[in-house]
Amino acid sequence: MTTRRMSRFRRAALAIVLPVVVVGAVAACGDPAAPEATPSAGLHMIANDGHRLAFHVTPGHSPTLVLDAGGGEDSSYWNTLLPRLSRATGSRIITYDRAGMGASDEVKGRWDGRAAAADLHAGLRELGITRDVILVSHSQAGEVATYFARANPNVLSGAVLVDANLPQFFTDTQIQRIVALTAPQIEALEKQPSTKENRQLIATAENFGPTHQAYHQVSWPDRVPVTVIVSEKTPFDGSPQDAQHWRDAAAEFVAAGPGRTLVTAHASSHDVPKDNPALVLREVEQLAATG
Rank of each mutant, 00 (worst) to 15 (best):
Q241S: 10
A103F: 05
H51C: 02
T3Y: 09
S269H: 13
D271Y: 07
D97W: 00
T227C: 09
A145M: 05
V144L: 15
A288K: 08
E206L: 13
T130S: 03
G291C: 13
P32H: 07
A13H: 07
F148G: 04
A12H: 05
I46M: 02
P210H: 08
N154W: 00
Y215S: 10
V280R: 02
R131T: 14
M45H: 06
S76I: 08
V179T: 14
G257M: 03
A69E: 13
I229C: 08
A255T: 11
A28E: 11
P235I: 04
S40I: 03
T182R: 00
P225L: 07
H56G: 04
A249G: 07
E283M: 13
P235F: 06
P258C: 05
H51P: 02
A255C: 08
R247C: 08
G72E: 11
G238Y: 05
R199E: 07
A214N: 12
Q241M: 11
A99E: 00
V21H: 00
G291D: 12
A265K: 06
G257T: 09
P153R: 03
A117K: 01
A265H: 02
H51G: 00
Q185R: 08
E143I: 03
L156A: 12
A265Q: 04
C29S: 12
V160G: 04
N207G: 13
A278E: 15
T80K: 03
I178K: 00
A34K: 10
V224F: 10
P210D: 12
N207F: 11
D74K: 02
R92H: 06
G100C: 00
V218A: 06
A267T: 07
G60A: 14
P167H: 06
A13D: 13
T95C: 13
G259L: 08
L262W: 09
T95I: 06
V280W: 07
L287G: 15
Y96P: 00
A267G: 08
R11D: 09
R8S: 09
G113K: 06
R131D: 13
G24V: 04
T182S: 14
A12R: 05
V21G: 02
F148Y: 15
S104M: 05
T38A: 12
G71R: 00
